[in-house]
Nucleic acid binder design. Structure first.
Lengths: 342, 342
DNA sequence: GCCCAATTTATAAGCGTTTACAGTTTACTT
DNA sequence: AAGTAAACTGTAAACGCTTATAAATTGGGC
């Protein structure tokens, strides 16, 4: 098998009797090419089986054709979902997706943001998924010249897609309240303050707001820190039951915390909704399986939407439209873990 | 927001006081560069945060610094896990990871393999995770000149990392047998024949082998096709109980099938291990949560291992070592879904 | 000290595109 | 039928890197 000599744009130009330039334009469907020329070029290209060298195109065009998706961790269901949806959009727009996982390690994040210029050499744009950035990192990103869009972020100077976390939490809490529960506990998440991710706090505020609207006060004993992991939820739920007091319903800041809560219940010989009602937020893949009532958020849609916004910016570099925050709808999915208080 | 001017090899040359050529050689650790020059170059490059333009490098005959990871779908727990582990290895070796999801769609796969030459211009190597390739695709990959390594594949002409699926299934079945169960059903997967993935079939063979070793025969009525999804497992389990016969234990070809089986049981007012023992393979993230007894396979390790093999090939392009198949250990994780037959 | 070989560095020619800019047609106007 | 604007096409210079090939430096042996 001999190395096939590459068919270049020159060959196409020669065969079609046109100039390289015209061929280039015709191939990319740019304006200012006559129909006749267009046809000739298409023809010749097909005949020769011509495929443009992406390396050359990129070199000359000054673009890389790569977009980086940055995630706190690639293994979480939530991110895998969003990444795949975004990847699809990017692929369809002709971009390759570079996956960068921060692996939940600050050192990795520091390293990445310490050399944004380097990243900027290799990709045209960046899609951030729930990455907690500080002021400096945000500024650095802006200075890098990269196109940026994000999902689930907060107070950032670029397009962002997310849900209204506070409202989602209010919905969740409201559902419990509507079922006649008034003695509510929350397994809340927590995140470093002053960064670009505010999910856990917003959900906590939503919880408090909902209670306030019903003229109930928050019992600080019933708001526990549970992180956002199964393990955290389990610990917090155990602590709640064993050392504080059994509420009539529990609002978990996210589904994984809720899973942990369900697990803790089971370990104690209890169950939802028999002993407590439990509700979460997210609609994790496993939630329907476990019968968890939850507020569903469209994860894939958010990834796809943000990817589209990014592509849009990439295609219109001059676009001065101010960055916008898009909120997608959440909705209650009622399953078996909640029921009316008797 | 000004577009940051690209740091080129020229800049590095200027700062180090050497010629472009020397810089290029030094950066790639080619011979014929004095230590002094080497140091100066490394220094200057670091100072400037220089990274070669992959497009320019590729165009001129060099390498891109990108590696593609190809997965059937990015959303499955299993792949997310392997991808993250591989990404870490690649990142530490200085490669960027390009994620390509086939989205379980043959058309996407066809398109990708129809233009491998294009891919080859953008990446130096490819890591395949459980991608079912036919003869032609394997040949095309070999012809592309790309470095290749894979996970979970079968009869491929490049380095592969996996587990011994047949043996794992034998272990699982053996565990059931050891608990005194002899009336076994299997919820088996199925995959197109003649392709480079043979997992489901190997597991079925392992099941049959284990039974044969105990001088038991397989009741064809108790081997059902369940695909490898939760839904498939649920359907198959329901079919088994309602239209065939209740076995004393069930071996599910993978954990997700087992989840479906557990669900079907619950829907019928039954449960494991009370009415049947259930065992799976994989040790999915949720398995410990659900108390599923299973044969654990080291998913992340496989991804990392394969990535290392790939990097090795990338670093030593002349390496003529024949491709090897590496099998990693699996081990039984006993939980609550199986118990001794009474 | 001088010459030659060995080692290191520099020059310059591609690689296959894109894209200003200049040049040529074409199609109307008048 | 000439003039002119609009439409199209061509020329040539990047783009940033690799790599022959040529040039310069170094070090030893005499």
């Amino acid at each position: 098998m001999t190395k096939a000599p590459r068919v270049t744009i020159q060959d196409v130009a020669a065969l079609s009797g046109l100039s390289i330039c015209t061929v280039s334009r015709a191939l990319r469907h740019l304006p200012n090419v006559s129909e006749k020329a267009q046809a000739k070029v298409t023809d010749a290209a097909a005949k020769l089986g011509y495929k443009a060298s992406s390396a050359a195109a990129r070199l000359a065009g000054g673009t890389t054709g790569f977009v980086a998706i940055i995630v706190p961790t690639a293994t979480a269901w939530y991110f895998a979902q969003a990444v795949e949806a975004a990847e699809e959009v990017l692929a369809d727009s002709g971009y390759d997706t570079v996956l960068v996982s921060l692996r939940n390690r600050p050192s990795v994040q520091r390293k990445l943001f310490g050399d944004l210029a380097g990243l900027a050499q290799r990709v045209d744009g960046v899609l951030l998924l729930n990455v907690a950035l500080d002021r400096g990192e945000i500024a650095a990103l802006e200075a890098s010249g990269l196109a940026v869009a994000s999902v689930g972020m907060h107070a950032v100077p670029w397009d962002n897609v997310g849900i209204d976390d506070q409202e989602a939490a209010r919905q969740a809490t409201g559902h419990l309240l509507g079922l006649g529960h008034w003695d509510l506990a929350m397994l809340a998440g927590r995140e470093p303050a002053g960064r670009s991710v505010d999910t856990a706090d917003a959900r906590r505020r939503g919880f408090e707001l909902a209670l306030a609207e019903h003229e109930l006060t928050v019992d600080p004993d019933l708001v526990l820190d549970a992180g956002s992991s199964i393990e955290g939820g389990r610990r917090a739920m155990t602590e709640l039951i064993e050392n504080r007091r059994m509420p009539s319903a529990v609002f978990a800041g996210c589904d994984e915390t809720a899973f942990g809560a369900l697990m803790a219940l089971r370990d104690l010989g209890l169950s939802a909704p028999k002993n407590v009602s439990v509700i979460g937020i997210d609609d994790h893949q496993m939630s329907w399986f476990l019968g968890l009532t939850t507020i569903a958020q469209p994860v894939a849609d958010q990834g796809a939407f943000a990817a589209n916004l990014l592509v849009e910016r990439l295609h219109h570099p001059g676009n001065q439209n101010p960055p916008a925050a898009h909120l997608l709808e959440t909705k209650l999915v009622e399953r078996r873990s909640t029921r009316r208080r008797r």
